[in-house]
């Protein structure tokens, strides 16, 4: 049991961070506005969670311009992908055990 709990990642212990990772896992990249609409959160809230994920190098940020408008795109890093997969399989194992 201990080894499974160990794989539950504290970083993903929040709805918004879990949501960001879920969206990035199935897309090559997602931009800020799309994430905001998808998760239904405020700019500030989303930005702070994105920063937290960037700090542990789970996501990668690309800044570019479409015309004159800045466009920030996010994608997962290999470390982030691995961490998220571990987290999901730990969740699934715990659910199975408790059944």
């Amino acid at each position: 049991m201990y080894s499974i709990i160990k794989n539950i990642n504290k970083i993903f212990d929040h709805r918004v961070r879990l949501g960001i990772m879920s969206a990035l896992m199935v897309n090559d990249f997602v931009d800020f506005i799309t994430l905001k609409e998808l998760l239904d959160v405020t700019d500030g809230n989303l930005a702070s969670h994105l920063k937290a994920l960037e700090k542990v190098e789970y996501i990668h940020i690309t800044k570019e311009f479409i015309g004159k408008k800045p466009n920030t795109k996010y994608s997962t890093t290999p470390i982030g992908t691995e961490a998220f997969q571990k987290h999901i399989s730990a969740l699934e194992k715990i659910i199975k055990m408790q059944r």
Binding site: R15, L18, S22, A23, V26, N27, T34, L38, L39
Partner: peptide
């Protein structure tokens, strides 16, 4: 929730 967001984003 993970499944829902993965579906809605793709």
């Amino acid at each position: 929730e993970i499944k829902d967001i993965m579906n809605r984003s793709t």
